[in-house]
Simulated assay, not measured.
Amino acid sequence: MKNSAKIIVLSLSILLSINLNAQSEKNGIGIGFHVNQIQNDFGIGIDIISPYFANSIVAIKIGGSLKWLQHSTLTSTTWTPYQNVQLGIRSRNFIIDDKFFIYGEGGGIVLIPNSIFSSEEFRGGGYGLFGFEFRTSSKIGFYFELGGVGTGARADKIVKSPIYSNGFLTNVGFRITL
């Protein structure tokens, strides 16, 4: 758990240093809140996006989610929580009147499994997605993202060792730009 805290602090430091070098007032840090699903695992999360740089096209994103793995026990079906942290690079390619954005994103993901279903402390992998953001004002937007995650993670303490946090990814949420 100590390593994940170091990763988060380092990533936030990078985002803050990028913010200090930002040129545009409309181009601030974005904080997003979302519900998501990877394969069959439901989650809620938060992400922070740096101001766009490189001709206002590229940004860095760090995010995290609290996820729930649905699995069977001897007597019932239960949901067991676990976390993930993502660090990625985003590219806005299509902008209409500063209100509609289409972007692509890719990066790394680190799972922090629950010891109830996994013997691993951490599991790394990658993700890729494309998204659509609709801005209702200069500071508030709603977004929808589709993509995929590959970690190879298995719940090895559960019968049949089912995979988790692999496969199709969806995120739906809203973002506030500071």
Rank of each mutant, 00 (worst) to 15 (best):
M1V: 12
K2A: 14
N3D: 11
K6P: 00
I7W: 01
I7D: 10
I7R: 09
I8W: 14
V9M: 05
S11K: 12
L12S: 05
S13A: 15
I14K: 03
L15W: 03
S17T: 04
S17C: 10
I18P: 06
L20K: 15
N21K: 13
Q23W: 00
E25A: 11
E25N: 06
I29K: 13
G30C: 13
I31V: 09
H34Y: 13
H34M: 07
N36Q: 15
N36Y: 05
Q39M: 07
N40T: 12
I44C: 02
G45D: 13
D47S: 07
D47P: 02
I49D: 13
P51H: 04
A54L: 15
N55F: 14
S56P: 08
S56E: 15
I60A: 14
I60D: 09
K61N: 15
K61I: 13
K61A: 11
G63W: 10
G64M: 04
S65Q: 15
L66A: 11
K67A: 01
K67E: 15
W68S: 06
L69C: 00
S72I: 03
T73E: 03
L74G: 05
L74F: 06
T75G: 09
T77M: 02
T77E: 07
T78W: 05
T80N: 08
Y82P: 14
Y82D: 12
Y82I: 08
N84T: 00
N84H: 08
V85F: 14
Q86T: 15
Q86I: 12
L87D: 07
N93V: 08
F94K: 00
D97N: 11
D97T: 11
D97H: 08
D97R: 12
K99Y: 09
K99C: 01
F100T: 10
F100W: 07
F101L: 03
I102C: 06
Y103H: 07
G104F: 15
G104K: 02
E105R: 02
E105P: 09
E105K: 06
G106Q: 01
G107Y: 11
V110S: 11
V110E: 05
L111G: 02
I112D: 02
S115E: 08
S115G: 07
F117G: 10
S118W: 08
S119H: 14
E120H: 13
E121T: 05
G126Q: 07
G128A: 09
G128L: 07
L129S: 03
F130E: 04
F130L: 14
G131W: 13
F132N: 03
F132C: 04
E133P: 00
R135M: 14
T136E: 12
S137W: 05
K139W: 01
G141L: 04
F144P: 00
G147L: 05
G147E: 01
G147N: 03
G147D: 00
G148L: 15
T151W: 10
T151A: 01
A155C: 09
K157D: 08
K157F: 12
K157N: 14
S161K: 11
S161Q: 12
S161M: 03
P162R: 07
Y164M: 10
Y164H: 11
T170C: 05
T170F: 11
T170R: 11
V172S: 06
V172D: 01
V172M: 14
R175N: 06
I176P: 01
T177F: 13
T177L: 05
